[in-house]
């Protein structure tokens, strides 16, 4: 066990971790931040995506100790302090981009990563960027639509609300 310290959503947090403690475990179990989900064990579903030093990573495939000293951003830190959803979160609600909500944290964090580098992605670019995020509920239609809408694009011509 050794102490791991990271800045999570702007707040410094510490806890003891083993070598094998994954970042996802550290967030969920050590820090009690259960917004980050774990949906697989082969690094494919993307429910666990968080940002480490500004880069989207799969927190189930990164050791907590590798994030020692890093700035970590999770789903819990996306809304404003008064609870107001950010543009991307609001677009997901407006366009029904989630159903059961389990993949949603990873979807939001991956989409945020995309919009940072590509502020007006095409449909194909959105779909390609979500290669590592699996949703079983939505058939992706409204997720793709929400992300394009969040980027300020007119999505009214895309079939169905």
């Amino acid at each position: 066990m050794s102490q791991v310290t990271m800045t999570v959503n702007g707040k410094e947090m510490s806890s003891d971790a083993e070598g094998r403690t994954l970042l996802s475990q550290f967030l969920r179990e050590n820090l009690g931040m259960t917004g980050t989900h774990v949906g697989c064990d082969t690094s494919q579903c993307g429910a666990c995506v968080v940002h480490v030093d500004g880069v989207a990573v799969k927190s189930c495939t990164m050791l907590a100790m590798e994030a020692d000293g890093a700035a970590v951003s999770t789903i819990e830190g996306q809304a404003a302090d008064d609870g107001t959803l950010n543009t991307l979160q609001q677009a997901f609600q407006d366009h029904h981009g989630l159903q059961c909500g389990f993949c949603t944290p990873g979807m939001i964090m991956s989409a945020a990563d995309l919009l940072k580098t590509n502020p007006k992605p095409s449909e194909a670019e959105v779909r390609h960027h979500l290669e590592g995020n699996i949703c079983r509920c939505t058939g992706y239609h409204n997720i793709v639509k929400a992300i394009m809408a969040a980027s300020g694009q007119d999505v009214s011509s895309i079939a169905a609300e």
Binding site: G46, A56, V57, S110, G132
Partner: peptide, 9 residues
């Protein structure tokens, strides 16, 4: 390779 999060690591 893989997906964006995998490519980051």
């Amino acid at each position: 390779i893989g997906d964006p999060a995998v490519r980051a690591r």
